[in-house]
Design a protein around this nucleic acid. Sequence first.
DNA 1: GATAATGATTCTTC
DNA 2: GAAGAATCATTATC
Length: 366
Amino acid sequence: MDDQQRLTHPSQGQVNMQNVMQGYDGSYGQGDPSEQRKQEIGDVLQQIMTITDQSLDEAQARKHTLNCHRMKPALFNVLCEIKEKACLSIRNTQEEEPPDPQLMRLDNMLIAEGVAGPEKGGASTASTPSPAASGGQTDSAIEHSDYRAKLAQIRQIYHTELEKYEQACTEFTTHVVNLLREQSRTRPIQPKEIERMVGIIRKKFSAIEMQLKQSTCEAVMILRSRFLDARRKRRNFTKNATEILTEYFYSHLSNPYPSEEVKEELARKCGISVSQVSNWFGNKRIRYKKNIGKAQEEANLYAAKAASAASSQMVGDPSSPTGSSNYSLPSSQAQMPGQGGMYPMNLNGGESYPGGDNSWELEDQD
DNA sequence: GATAATGATTCTTC
DNA sequence: GAAGAATCATTATC
């Protein structure tokens, strides 16, 4: 149905012909007044419809004429009503759009990560990656706070940008609404049409907003992966922890394979995880074998320390260094039969090290 | 900046 | 599944 038809359609074109009549002052001259009115309305409509075919100057002149036409107010109201109906039919097809699943996913993620929604006060509980293998509770705490600080930064940037977008959207909407209201004085614009326009603007801005959310999610993902990658966050163990582990290693050189129970005890003493203890012993055994000469010096050093500690204990010196010699570890775990002492090697590279019963280290040496 | 040391990961073997 | 071996990536030292 074209515009011409719509204007004459029984249900739409004759929307409110009283309006047209209101603009008519009845001074049309002779003949059938009804026919004359129809003729005149037809002429005016024809002029409106063909206005776009004319040159700019002609169109401007014609527009001026039409604006000054005595039937203009009446026609204006009719056109408004027709347009309103047309707009409503368009609206009905556009409303009730389901929420974008992608946007929902992004929103959920941002809420879960503590970027959107209420701030997770001091906790970052659910969202903080667990740097399990980073070594030590202190380091862990530092990493947590570091992660929180960076997440807070992302959160702040996100909210600032979001605010900017919302402000820009509101400003632009207000501007367009004002413009349309201004124009509604000269062309038929209904409030519902303005509403529709506002909806379109909001939709455009929500697309930008989605991009912002997408970028924020990516930033959070990168942050998480960086903190979760333990290799990047490798920290050397504390001097004390290394000493405890090394001392245990050399004191059980004949069989440096601590049981799970011992590993747990060592982990507790060193403030590291059991898997870190396992890693440490794994590395230590390999590197010990690879560089046995240097390791021997280290072994002698620890043996000397142990010897002095043992002699102090024997004379009942209460001020003797306790160090790792105070392990409450089951001695049967790691020591070979016949090795009663804590340190099964002597200072001369004697029985247990390296020429002693350290079969594990001799198995596959070149 | 080069190098060594070191903690962690991955793959293989048993 | 644990241990060995190779390797990676970071940290410490000079």
